[in-house]
Design a protein around this nucleic acid. Sequence first.
RNA 1: GGCGCUUUCGUCUAGCGGCUAGGACACAUGCCUCUCACGCAUGGAACACGGGUUCGAUUCCCGUAGGCGCUACCA
Length: 523
Amino acid sequence: MSCEEKKVRVRFAPSPTGPLHIGGVRTALYNYLFARQHGGELIFRIEDTDSTRFVPGAEEYIIEAFNWLGIKFDEGVSFGGNHGPYRQSERRDIYKRYVQQLLDADKAYIAFDTPEELEQKRQEIENFQYDARTRGLMRNSLTLPKEEVNRLIQEGNQYVVRFKIEPGEDVHVDDLIRGDVVINSSILDDKVLFKSADQLPTYHLANIVDDHLMEVTHVIRGEEWLPSAPLHVLLYRAFGWQDTMPRFAHLPLLLKPVGNGKLSKRDGDKLGFPVFPLEWHDPKSGEVSSGYREKGYLPQAVCNFLALLGWNPGNDQELMSMEEMIRLFDLSKCSKNGAKFDYVKAAWFNHQYLIQQPDEAWVPEFDKLLKGEGIISTPEKEVEVVKMMKLKVIEYTDGEGNKKKRNVSFVSDLWPLTKFFFVAPTAFDREDKFVKKNWKETTADEMRQFMDVLATVDDFSVEGQKTIVDPWVEQSGLRPWNAWRICLVGAGQGPDMYELAAFLGKEETLRRMQFAIETLCNS
RNA sequence: GGCGCUUUCGUCUAGCGGCUAGGACACAUGCCUCUCACGCAUGGAACACGGGUUCGAUUCCCGUAGGCGCUACCA
């Protein structure tokens, strides 16, 4: 890169039509990584040129989401900067000026065709497209006398400004990921650039004008924009900005985990994974969509996982901090084909980041979990005992050597793994493989004997139990642990039995054993 | 329908003319063991198809088929 080359400036420009889609998060992430790597700037622009689709709260949601994810912007809506305003609805005058420039240069024209008239034409003509072949048939400033055009505008008729595309030219888009993409201008239609009804431009015009004015050097966006990239190239040229036109990079799309098509909100709800970074409450329908944050994902895990969906550093490294990703990121190493969204692997990434955290970091989430299960009534009233229990339980999932042993992808996974610490079994599944194998005809009797032995233990610590129980095990020849486990846990899981009994205490241990013997004898 | 992009294990992918086609997730098995899990070890699993180019194609080119996207006064 030569030193006179411009400073890298990229942007993420969502439309505030709802919550930010996870695919959008990835696009933003790639822009962020690219900007940081090149010491450049990332701009946050709001593309609200479709007033009919505006959703209140969406903009705030998006900002909060990036804040949570740790993706930082250098300028834009809510971040400031001297290329503003960054909300397109506040840039009307700017766009008008540039639309006029195109009109004056005869590179655009005014069209009065109503939606109904257009619909009719589509009926009449097969594969109708508003272009060089058909614009002579329509009501526009190319076919109408100048006075008529002025009169129509004067009288307040609604109109649009269309881009006049010259047919028959191969337009080249030099894509950083896909190389040279060629589309013939004849298949492009005379896109609407501006609508008189709301005095706003459409995406295409606003996009080009803003990227130019904001000195954007690289446009990194989803593949859905590839077909309109030639149009954008033509627009840059029409304005005479071809020399400063940004480089393009069209990212592959995120696809459904199963079946066909691109990832949609519904898939997430159906398969049980979020498609939004944060939980979203739809202001209109009241519908709630789950979010990664609320599901217990760590933002670093989400970023790491997402980054690898469509890009890789070229080696086998998968776990990367944001700093490493910034260092390693490379547009030319992005894949070209769509990636199915693998939520199972997303959970694995979360597991990896979760187990790196200190135990205390789990406590707030764990509290929520216990509250939900009715174990803790109010955090304020939380007693020392519960606090101690929690740490003990977390420690159990922690294991030796400070290496998390349990398969915990989310803090919420802790409950099924550890509920027996807090609540006694209330029922036993006779058909359960473990129960079947370890609770035989004679087991109840053995457990009664065992209870008698335990009753004599005064010091119920692990060591205290062992001094009494081990000799008994030795001389009776019994192997009481699995059945004991059924009594205390209700299933084939949990920590060392002495440990568990010590944790529960003598009274609770005997109570659970008594209950199990009675229940299993009567079933 | 038209146009464009794309095609390596079930999934994410490495590979940039010559490899026993590598890794990760998931799955299975074994070891460990009072259970589950962890850990360790092992295993099954892929170059869509057909033509070229070449001494040689997973790799380059062209078709076909599949997938995806776009085809609005939405972004």
